[in-house]
């Protein structure tokens, strides 16, 4: 009976869909239940804004990690966003479509390289370069920013390309017919019209940068302190969890979960604002 099989398939797909959703829910509940009580017990302000991270002495202030995460992410955006948007503009406006169809998938392939490989290249190539030419230990905030800046390129480029291509051809033609050059058209018409998609790509990329762990652990040096310059080693929130979870117990373990809660909230905020910006664009059409 086709009708029964239809019903069975429907149930099955529903179950699959819900299992994905419940996995997300379980993770969220688990992290929050493990971490949130600690935050309340230890004190929200003490936890977030104290610079003392000394688990043996019962000091759990993650402020240095928060600042480091912020700097590494901002550095990555400063490197990745201009490169990514410029690349997207170049590929959509200045290069024949056939060439773009070859280059875009190759860039998207960058996203498929395991992050440990990026970290490896950072340790072997980038860190020595920084050490020799700029000074410091090499493993540093700067190295982390550069590696992350490259890692987020595929996100920025492919979403930006999609949103630039979604700009109606008539806008471009209207502008060109008014005697604008291609570059003037890009700057004054195409980019403003695509700006919400580009903004969303940057926010999503930011989420990736905040959440990246392996590559960051390998290239940033991981010392717990507020960085005085870009050449100093730093430890991010993600690195902190990954480095200490293996041996942490009791309060220490809960403090790491609480760190996870902070990360979780930050990334949720970033993702929600990305989809909000995207929806704004659709609403305007």
């Amino acid at each position: 009976m086709p009708v029964t099989s239809e019903k069975i398939m429907q149930r099955l797909l529903l179950a699959v869909a819900f299992s994905a959703l419940s996995a997300l829910l379980l993770i969220a509940v688990f992290i929050i239940s493990q971490g949130l009580p600690f935050i309340f017990r230890y004190g929200f302000r003490e936890f977030l804004f104290s610079s003392q991270w000394n688990p043996q002495a019962g000091k759990f202030g993650i402020f240095p990690m928060v600042v480091s995460t912020l700097w590494v992410t901002l550095g990555a955006m400063a490197i990745g966003a201009p490169l990514g948007v410029a690349g997207a503009v170049f590929l959509t406006e200045f290069v024949p479509r056939t060439v773009m169809r070859i280059i875009k998938p190759s860039i998207e392939l960058l996203a498929g390289i395991p992050s440990v490989v990026y970290g490896f290249i950072g340790v072997m190539v980038l860190a020595p370069l920084i050490r020799d030419h700029l000074g410091g230990p090499g493993l540093s905030l700067l190295a982390g920013s550069i590696i992350l800046g490259i890692m987020i390129l595929p996100t920025i480029i492919s979403i930006s390309i999609d949103s630039i291509m979604a700009v109606p051809k008539s806008y471009r033609e209207g502008s060109l017919a008014l005697g604008a050059t291609v570059w003037q058209t890009v700057r004054m018409v195409t980019l403003p019209a695509a700006r919400s998609g580009i903004a969303a790509s940057i926010i999503l990329a930011m989420g990736r940068a905040v959440g990246e762990t392996m590559a960051v652990i390998m290239v940033t040096g991981n010392s717990v302190k507020i960085p005085g310059s870009a050449l100093e080693p730093v430890r991010t929130l993600t690195a902190n969890i990954a480095l200490e979870m293996g041996y942490a117990t009791g309060m220490h373990r809960q403090a790491l979960f609480a760190t996870g809660v902070v990360l979780f909230v930050v990334i949720m905020i970033l993702n929600f604002s990305a989809s909000y910006v995207m929806r704004q664009r659709k609403a305007r059409r």
Binding site: P168, S170, E173, G174, S175, G179, T181, M188, V189
Partner: peptide, 26 residues
Amino acid sequence: VGMVFAMPVPLPMSIHENIIYGPKLS
């Protein structure tokens, strides 16, 4: 040689900006 298209396509900006777009570029 200016052109007006079949479909009206104002640029996504204000009326004022649409008018001065061309002269501003020139």
